[in-house]
């Protein structure tokens, strides 16, 4: 009776949430549980036959060096791109935020252009630009005399990750730039006026006056950028397919290759791929929890100074 009563009182609330909850149920929550279920089975995905193996897949993963390499590369990618992207865009945002600079809207548009370009296009265009055969980048390096032989940026295991990181930062720099600019807009003009009176300018103004004010935004930007940097599949897939010799195989490529057996014609292992996804997801969830905890502490600290 009480349940029915609650349902009646809040019927409009539940009704209004229904479309969103159905969508989320199908594509957010159900997949998480389904992935855990698949992860405990030996299953190719083509046959109906699923063999329950319990934690067998996870044990295999722990001993699979290809999995750990892919895992490590995802982390390297995250650590390689996010700080670089945030730092460069912060400096640019501070320059573009100068009120005397009349062309900043134009410059901002140019820098934002890669953001609105589909990733697959970017991957393919850069494959050619970085090509060792007639690629413009190598052409320039050769003309300047910086190298004597063309560099096979995407074809060698040493240069492939830095190249992909570089292209990623180029692609998404515009969006972090917008975030920083939004943060800088919240700095009141009076602050700059006061700083001028105290003859504080240049890097001292940036470090001791502006940065502390926009610090609370840094965490939000860090979070959004980190989420984005984990979804790097399209860029790497369209540039290298994870190659050469798995040299750029990040977690998502590993999952895709294992689940759908893209190239090598081996048997797809959906269960194994799902287990990899679950393990990776669990680690990320742990990281999120840590970050949330850190965020809470910072917020409490700032609330303390305000009060």
């Amino acid at each position: 009776m009480r349940v029915l009563g609650t349902l009646r009182v809040h019927r409009f609330h539940y009704l209004m949430m229904l479309p969103g909850l159905v969508l989320a149920g199908m594509f957010v929550f159900y997949p998480i549980f389904a992935a855990m279920f698949y992860a405990m089975h030996d299953w190719s995905g083509f046959t109906a036959q699923k063999i329950f193996v319990g934690f067998g897949n996870f044990l295999d993963l722990f001993l699979d060096p290809i999995f750990w390499n892919a895992f490590g590369r995802s982390i390297v990618f995250l650590v390689g791109t996010v700080p670089l992207q945030m730092a460069i865009s912060l400096v640019l945002a501070m320059v573009l935020n100068m009120q005397l600079l009349k062309l900043s809207t134009f410059f901002r548009t140019m820098i934002f252009l890669p953001v609105v370009t589909p990733v697959a296009v970017i991957g393919i265009v850069w494959t050619f630009l970085l090509s060792p055969f007639n690629g413009p980048v190598n052409g320039l390096l050769l003309d300047l005399g910086l190298v004597s032989q063309p560099i096979d940026f995407l074809g060698s295991t040493q240069t492939v990750m830095p190249s992909v990181v570089g292209v990623y930062v180029w692609k998404w720099l515009g969006i972090t730039l917008i975030y920083w600019l939004a943060a800088l807009q919240t700095v009141p003009d009076e602050v700059y006026d006061a700083a001028r009176l105290d003859n504080c300018k240049g890097h001292r103004l940036a470090f001791y006056v502006v940065l502390p004010i926009i610090k609370p935004f840094a965490l939000a930007i860090l979070l959004i950028s980190s989420v984005a940097a984990l979804n790097v599949f399209p860029l790497i897939m369209s540039m290298t397919n994870g190659g050469p010799f798995f040299g750029s195989e990040v977690m998502e490529i590993f999952i895709y290759r294992t689940a759908f057996a893209a190239d090598d014609g081996s048997i797809p292992q959906l269960g194994y791929a799902a287990a990899a996804g679950v393990l990776f997801g669990a680690v990320l969830l742990g990281l999120t929890a840590l970050q949330a905890l850190a965020a809470r502490r910072t917020r409490m600290a700032t609330a303390g100074t305000k009060a």
Binding site: E252, F280, L285
Partner: peptide, 18 residues
Amino acid sequence: VATVFIPQGFTIIPVFEL
């Protein structure tokens, strides 16, 4: 809030199955 961080690669297989 807890699922914000789950990347696409994690859920692609069940989504396809569904």
